[in-house]
Amino acid sequence: MSGRAGTVVDDAVADDAADLAIRTRGLTKRFRSQVAVDGLDLAVPRGAVYGFLGPNGSGKTTTIRMLLGLVRATAGEAEVLGSPMPRAIDAVLPRVGALVEGPAFSPYLTGAQNLRRFDAADRHSIGSTRDTRVAEALERVGLSHAAAKKAHAYSLGMKQRLGLANALLMPRDLLVLDEPTNGLDPQGTREVRALIRSFAADGTTVFVSSHLLAEVEQLCTHVGVMSAGRLVAQGTLEELRRSGGRARVRVRTPDAPAARRVLAGLGIEVESGSAASDLEVVVGTLPDDEEAPEAIVAALVAERVRVRGFAVERASLEQRFVELTGEGFDVVA
């Protein structure tokens, strides 16, 4: 597989570094001899909901840890919100809310106490507004009723939401959410996705990692695909769909030769057909600068080709990802 991310990166996005919330160049992490992340070139535009997609163990969490300064890169560099990490960690992280590898809390403290603790850890947070902010964050994730409960009594879904509340203690420019729906029931999953959409609606850049294709398809505007430590594709969802090979056009018509002529005239590679019946199906592959489907139909009709059926077909995203990663994805929503 040619695989390197650059092949699908939208050049316009890559070039405008100032508009990137996250950018990495050749970001690499080796644990002893094992390469966990290999030469990553991430480009996450500001305001995007970026799906960081890849099977478990493909290096997503390690990448997130490097972006947040928890793990030191073996090589390469990372910029978050325009500042180098981990050098500018103190300036950057207060503007970043994050959920890394599941929520984690001191079991002997209540939900609210846990949030207050993390908030106090940020030296620039204002103590006098802490209680209000904690209450608001709990309210937003629907945990107000459980604020005084010890964290060890929380269900997994509640913990996940408490983790999100922690990410929301302050106005954030970037949210980094590592598998935010992991382990949640369908109801919880829906709630969390709704929350993520609401963050994005506020204009916050959201970087969300997932191993669920459907989740990324539902939530994200951009996507990066990880496989075995490498970023194998990156771009908008649409770009990725298109990259999965060119679309094919199928025309069902009794006037097959005319249709072939018209399609070829439009630059479509027409496959040599077989006249199985009077209603021949003409199949062609669209060029990269494809015509809009309606334009193709208009052209056919203009040449008096009787069009009885017309379809433009594309490979599904799932097929595309299987192609990229060599692995299947959970498609369970």
Binding site: E101, G102, A104, S106, N166
Partner: peptide, 16 residues
């Protein structure tokens, strides 16, 4: 407990 990572990304500052 895993809370170390959340304290560090708060960010608490490692030396602090």
């Amino acid at each position: 407990h895993g809370t170390l990572r959340y304290l560090l990304i708060a960010p608490a500052g490692r030396i602090r």
